[in-house]
């Protein structure tokens, strides 16, 4: 099987034309970028506003969790049955699935901004929109990026399924391969989309590290690697290690 997979990849016709691997990768990235961008335009301001006013927070969490239970395949099929074939219906389905993680990230990031900093901002006379844009939104960046990462991966995975309802992209290799029982083609498509997902995740993680401010960066590292970070503030850190026998 692996030999036949090698044959599939080394066939030069795979690497050119509108059904070739490069074209399918670009299509897949294009659908993903389009859906995530539309979802971000809707979800990020809404999430930030709800996080700032703290009104409707429970509803956001409830809706986000409820949407998570929606089967992606069903949503895609339903949108196409109701709205017809083409780029728009599957893209709308992808947007719908990308909204919950982005909304949750923006909401929890803004709502979780240091209340001391928010009070201080009001105390020095900032207006509400300044508090939001200059204090809460910067503080929300790490969680927003987390939501963005999750939404992007979700959309890449769902765009693969969307080949079933006529979208292009890398899912074509898997769906078309299955319909003619061409397993090397299915496997080839699966390998490419898996590699693409891992590369995108890696890039977004790196981006997250770049834009996360200092102390948070240390905190994130500590979670990722285990060793405790050096204390970054004089505030009393939990020193439970000292009581270990």
């Amino acid at each position: 099987m692996l030999g036949r997979l090698g044959d599939w990849f080394s066939d030069p016709t795979r690497w050119s034309g509108s059904a070739g691997i490069p074209a399918r990768v670009l299509e897949h990235l294009g659908y993903t970028a389009l859906a995530v961008a539309i979802a971000a335009v809707i979800a990020l301001p809404l999430g930030a506003l709800i996080g700032h006013t703290r009104r409707g927070g429970l509803a956001v969490v409830g809706v986000a969790n409820g949407l998570r239970a929606l089967p992606e395949l069903g949503v895609l099929v339903l949108f196409v049955l109701l709205l017809g074939l083409g780029l728009l219906p599957p893209t709308l389905a992808l947007v719908l699935l990308a909204i919950p993680p982005l909304l949750a990230g923006a909401y929890s990031g803004v709502a979780g901004a240091d209340p001391g900093a928010v009070d201080a901002a009001r105390g020095i006379g900032m207006r509400e929109h300044q508090v939001l844009l200059q204090v809460e939104v910067p503080a929300a960046v790490p969680l927003v990026l987390g939501g963005l990462r999750f939404a992007t991966l979700q959309v890449i995975a769902t765009a693969t399924i969307a080949a079933y309802v006529g979208l292009g992209g890398l899912g074509r290799f898997i769906i078309d391969g299955f319909s003619v029982r061409d397993f090397p083609q299915m496997l080839g498509g699966a390998v490419i989309v898996a590699v693409l997902s891992i590369v995108v995740e890696f890039v977004l993680q790196g981006l997250g590290r770049l834009v996360t401010p200092g102390p948070d960066r240390l905190r994130l590292r500590r979670h990722a690697d285990g060793p405790p970070a050096p204390p970054v503030s004089p505030s009393p850190a939990p020193s439970s290690r000292e009581v270990r026998p």
Partner: peptide
């Protein structure tokens, strides 16, 4: 932990349809 946490992160990243084929 240095092996398991990144490995599980990478596995979780692989789209379901691809994993079903693997």
């Amino acid at each position: 932990r240095r092996v398991l946490v990144p490995l599980s992160g990478a596995l979780y990243t692989v789209p379901s349809l691809a994993l079903i084929v693997f």
